[in-house]
């Protein structure tokens, strides 16, 4: 474990709570003095990508003062990565993800890779009834052999005749509702309607 490179968000990082890291950055970008926030710009940018929010990532990039962009070599690389993600240029995305960003950024880049792969995997599962192993390997950024092994654990069948695999759709996890809250709002509505009547 690296000794806290980003002390303010260390507790979120240890809990793998990237959502809170993003809200911390959003909160403090304007609140902190710029010289204190400067080292967080790259974390902020990567976390927008983890959240798959290219639009806000672009505005963040436009906001970062140019002298800071020049001073931090990683910022430009992360922005290049953002552009490839928005164009869905898979080959370049995985090439950029493999770059060594140094130990401080590694946990974020790692999470970005995992979440991006998960997103693409879900997308392929639901959008293809049949996909060539070559394309699947490109989309997921893993070797053809790994594609076969990985997809088979997820119940995909291999079609030997055409060197392709048959994806199985994944269903989104249904959220369980809060019954008490529902009853509460229901009584509120009924109360409202009754008041109307009298």
């Amino acid at each position: 474990m690296v000794t806290a490179a980003y002390p303010e968000i260390q507790k979120y990082l240890e809990a793998n709570d990237f959502k809170n890291i993003l809200s911390w950055c959003t909160e403090n970008e304007l609140r902190l003095q710029q010289d204190k926030f400067v080292k967080y710009y790259n974390v902020f940018l990567i976390n927008y990508l983890i959240a798959n929010d290219i639009t806000n990532a672009r505005f963040l990039w436009n906001r970062i003062p140019s002298e800071i962009k020049g001073a931090d070599p990683h910022l430009k690389t992360i922005w290049a990565l953002a552009k490839y993600i928005s164009q869905l240029n898979y080959a370049h995305i995985y090439k950029h993800l493999a770059i060594n960003f140094g130990p401080e950024l590694a946990p974020f880049i790692n999470e970005l890779k995992v979440s991006f792969q998960r997103r693409v995997f879900d997308l392929i599962s639901n959008s293809y009834s049949n996909i060539s192993i070559k394309d699947a390997s490109l989309y997921l950024g893993i070797s053809p052999e790994e594609v076969v092994r990985f997809t088979q654990t997820n119940g995909w069948e291999k079609d030997p005749s055409s060197d392709s695999v048959k994806p199985v759709p994944v269903k989104p996890v249904e959220q369980v509702g809060n019954g008490t809250k529902k009853i509460h709002s229901l009584t509120d509505y009924i109360k409202h309607v009754r008041i109307e009547e009298f």
Partner: peptide
């Protein structure tokens, strides 16, 4: 098409074979 499926604009499945 893939982007449109992701954005929920259309519902479709592609068969590459």
């Amino acid at each position: 098409i893939l982007k449109m499926i992701e954005d929920g604009e259309i519902f479709a499945t592609i068969n590459q074979k």
